[in-house]
């Protein structure tokens, strides 16, 4: 072979990763999802040390490094802490535009992310004003729930 026999652009070999996982959600999140699915309620877990109500619930408090025990229902109303409106399409993610917000549900110490729906997102500035930090929302529960985070969404009040 000559030193430089290549006549085409460098080759590209296509490949795809298809790795299926069955994530064990564990006993704590299982209880959270069952309560969400069967009763339409959002619950957090309370740290016995700092008394923080962690939502979504954690089996332990990262700060105090102790297990959490007590369940506390929170919401369904809450306060927006941060949000974004996505206008760019990303592979494998939903069709834009969509809004995501972190909301501190009433009674919780931490904020939980979910979609904000039932809101016109066509004008970014107008939508952003409606979603301003501090504004109030409520959790709206789907009629058919499957035990997943997307069983509810936030709606402006």
């Amino acid at each position: 072979m000559n030193q430089k026999e290549q006549t085409e652009a460098p080759l590209i070999h296509s490949g795809e990763w298809k790795i299926h996982y069955d994530y064990a959600v564990g006993e704590t999140a299982t209880q959270f999802f069952l309560r969400l699915r069967d009763q339409g309620k959002i619950a957090g877990k309370k740290c016995p040390s700092c008394q923080g109500v962690l939502v979504p619930p954690r089996a332990f408090c990262e700060r105090c490094f102790v297990q959490t025990e007590e369940w506390v229902d929170v919401g369904p109303e809450g306060t927006i802490e941060a949000f974004t409106i996505v206008y760019e399409p990303f592979d494998g993610l939903p069709e834009p535009p969509y809004a995501v917000a972190y909301v501190t549900l009433d009674g919780a110490t931490t904020a939980m992310a979910n979609f904000v729906r039932a809101l016109d997102l066509s004008d970014p500035e107008v939508a952003a004003r409606q979603l301003a930090v501090g504004n109030r929302v409520e959790a709206v529960f789907a009629d058919a729930r499957e035990g997943a985070v997307t069983d509810f969404y936030y709606r402006l009040m």
Binding site: A29, F83, T84, V86, F90, V100, A113, T150
Partner: peptide, 17 residues
């Protein structure tokens, strides 16, 4: 993967927050 992946978070929107 259990609480937040399905809410379409990624590196750009986390900085928007």
């Amino acid at each position: 993967p259990i609480y937040e992946k399905s809410v379409a978070l990624n590196a750009i929107n986390m900085c928007s927050l």
